[in-house]
């Protein structure tokens, strides 16, 4: 097997995650899909690291994880406070930008 298949897998997972962001209305699930996309990227980074024979790709993936953790904390806090004020976690309910 060619290790490039990891990249194909990462692309597939990324696309699935992106589609999920677009079709799901529950903010939490949307958030999970974003995490899925981040993980797909991480997989690609790790594969690239192996391809180039150095650890820089892993370092990037590591930073991605840390930033993702921070993002999750803030994002979930936002969802919670949104739910408190609107009694709903639907991203479609926050549609004040329409004409």
């Amino acid at each position: 097997m060619n290790p490039v298949n990891y990249l194909y897998l990462a692309a597939l997972l990324f696309s699935i995650g992106a589609t999920g962001v677009l079709i799901r209305r529950n903010a939490i699930v949307v958030f999970m899909c974003i995490e899925l996309m981040l993980n797909a990227c991480n997989l690609a980074f790790v594969a690239f690291s192996r391809m180039h024979g150095n650890l820089d790709g892993q370092i990037i993936a590591f930073f991605t994880m840390v930033v993702a953790a921070a993002e999750v904390v803030v994002g979930l806090a936002i969802i919670v406070s949104l739910f408190r004020s609107r009694h709903s976690a639907s991203v479609d309910d926050a549609s004040l930008m329409k004409l």
Binding site: A18, V21, L22, I23, V91, D92, S95, K98, L99
Partner: peptide, 13 residues
Amino acid sequence: QNGYARSYAVSML
């Protein structure tokens, strides 16, 4: 411009 973040996300993608 329907105000739905998901529609905007579609155009972004």
